[in-house]
Design a protein around this nucleic acid. Sequence first.
DNA 1: AGGACTGTTCCGCG
DNA 2: GCGCGGAACAGTCC
Length: 252
Amino acid sequence: MAQNLDRWLGGRRILEVQTPDEKFQGVGLDAVVGSTVRRAWRRAKYAVVDLDCGRSLVFHYRMTGKTVLDPEGLRRARLRIVVEPFAVVSFEDVRRFGEVWCMPTAELSDFFDRKSLGPEPWPDVRGGPWWAEALAGLRGPIKTVMMRQERVAGVGNIIASEALFLAGIDPRVSAVNLDDEQWSRLAQGVRTVIDRTLDAESGDEIAYVNAGGEGSFLVYGHAGEPCPRCGDEIVRIVQASRGTFYCPSCVG
DNA sequence: AGGACTGTTCCGCG
DNA sequence: GCGCGGAACAGTCC
């Protein structure tokens, strides 16, 4: 999403900001009208748009939010940004959990400090020892431990299931019981999932946030279907109130 | 009709 | 301290 924002908005001047969702009124978005976008980037699950007026927009998409380019209809938009050369970026979000902030760029570091976010697992290459240290002392099941944002930022429910499947690790095993080889495979698994997802989502359309968008995932959302590795049935369990998908046969 | 849902935050129990 | 259930936010899809 951040890469899209950078491609769509970088170097363009904001002509107008519309907030059809009253929840986004009072955010102070009018302050950026007339300024030009420097770049867009990402921290954890937040997308940040820096402007040359010294302010930044911060987006969090939560569960169902997405930014789309030149939408067909206006109905779904919670927020619209009109830029020149002419383009419209629309923030759409069925469940309306998503959030937007407008703040001085200089205050971003304080903003993120308050969120208590751990280091990024990507794009820097992180190996098994890095992961073992980042999650040290956490005794819960590895799948829920991987999602602890204050230890490692950005791994959510989809990436956790997918990475553990690639690594051949049982999501129920306690994090303290992983050996060096498993930490190494987990590190590679996370990296592979993110790389593959970004490859699959490199265009203007973000497929996986749409209905039926599980298509690019190996196990997530595929309970009852054959495992792509061994053909046995993928199962769904619940951990910490979240669905976990894995292949019992592949984690022995 | 009822369950499930990619995220975060808070409360409360054990 | 920690894990985790549940609730809340809110709406759609199957």
